[in-house]
Design a binder for these strands. Structure first.
Lengths: 244, 244
DNA sequence: AGGTTTGATTATTTCGAAAATCCGCAGTAA
DNA sequence: TTACTGCGGATTTTCGAAATAATCAAACCT
């Protein structure tokens, strides 16, 4: 049991994967742009094979799409996709909440409170613009995961996590414009309370609203970014996205 | 608008992907087997890079799991995974059915009947052992897809399709032993009738039972194939979410 | 003897060049 | 003009070898 702890020992592909994911979510790589290998090779300082590896994994996460043998593309954003994504997330999250409340134990409750506390403390420390911090995003993700971690379904959790990551990009697009995140603080606390009180129906409804209201916020403040022509880009004109 | 204009132009990686998927589903590559590159390179007659490409995509489909920097593994099967998979499929399929019935048009109804007819005719032609045929499996898959094709949610359909593929491997494991598929014929017809009649609740229940009964059948006849050692707590580890 | 380190062996990951493919454009014919 | 065909440049995909990491076993220390 010598090396159970190796957070530093990461593969090069894993490193590039993480950097590209971050760049895509932060829109440093804009939605819809073509990903040319030569350009990426300079940008991330790796070879073709390593890039291909990272690209393949990002395709699996839905952040990159493969265009046959015509290369790769940053997954486009659209109003349609955002709404669809939201509906699927609500379906999955409601089920996760239900199962977690049915199956969760004391340890699970404690983990939720710990995750909330960490997120809450960092919020206080960072002040008004916490929602721009990558560190807060991580704790926010961990909090929502802790709520459903006890659901007992690895398959559901994996699906949920992928959807969460994709939604994260949309959230980020709006948060850089106008922060309407103030109300989210209390919402998180309310959700935690109802979950730990094992009030399934109310907890589900709160999470449902939590997700849908965030989506509406994004649509209100950032939808101009993905109305096909609007986004300015330094490289090429965005291709009209194939309908299906 | 026809984007189905390239059936011949396939990449080498795509070809290997298809062959490996087929071999995994048919259990020619047994669950839990370590996939050594050198072996695979001889078996499929391609190079490391091409293999890696195919492997990556199979990981995305859940038919192969990656073990850090310790190579790849055919995704193990277990009673736990089968039950979990079934529950998630029921959740997703019920929602798909509901949405499709809400949103489907005449064209959708016609497509369902066409898909059923093709499946039904092939069944008659092949006789008693139709369920072993790859061609029938394709038509069966197409029939179930046609039922939900009008649901209007690309994200949900993509998730559904991946789950369907994984379940296919389990179905195949039992069908090679003892065929209990006789009743499925009438079930398919009943489901089609209730869907086209827009009887949402009944259609959902029928599909629900259709899936769960198949799972029970698999457990009854093939579970001895995946009772490897103890409980499957060491199976399928996706991305560890960085807590800190 | 038990447990740990060292070193050889095996397997995976990464690399950059070579082959295959795609895209745009010019030239030709209807 | 409009549509078809064949070249030239650019991009992706594939290849096999070299570098990196993991595995196993024998030797070493306690």
């Amino acid at each position: 049991m010598g090396n159970t702890l190796k957070p530093a020992g990461e593969t090069r592909a894993g490193d590039v994967l993480a950097r590209m994911r971050s760049d895509i979510i932060s829109c440093a790589l804009k939605p819809g742009t073509k990903l040319r290998f030569e350009t990426l090779r300079e940008l991330y300082e790796v070879s073709f094979s390593t890039l291909r590896e990272a690209l393949s994994r990002l395709v699996a996460e839905g952040l990159v799409v493969a265009e046959g043998q015509r290369g790769f593309l940053v997954a486009p954003v659209s109003l349609f996709d955002l709404n669809d994504l939201t509906d699927v997330r609500v379906l999955v999250e409601r089920q996760c909440i239900k199962l977690a409340i049915d199956r969760g134990d004391d340890r699970w409750e404690a983990d939720i409170m710990a995750a909330f506390h960490r997120m809450d403390r960092l919020q206080s420390r960072l002040g008004a613009s916490y929602y721009l911090s990558d560190e807060w995003a991580t704790l926010h993700s961990a909090f929502h995961l802790s709520l459903v971690a006890a659901c007992g379904s690895p398959n559901l959790l994996e699906i949920r996590q992928k959807l969460f990551e994709r939604a994260h990009r949309y959230r980020r697009m709006s948060s850089q414009f106008r922060p309407q995140w103030r109300a989210k603080d209390v919402e998180h606390k309310m959700i935690m309370d109802r979950v730990i009180a094992r009030d399934t129906a109310t907890a589900q409804d709160l999470v449902d609203r939590h997700i849908r209201e965030t989506t509406e916020n994004v649509i209100a403040h950032a939808s101009h970014l993905f109305a096909q022509g609007g986004a300015g880009d330094a490289f090429r004109r965005p291709d009209p996205v194939a309908a299906e």
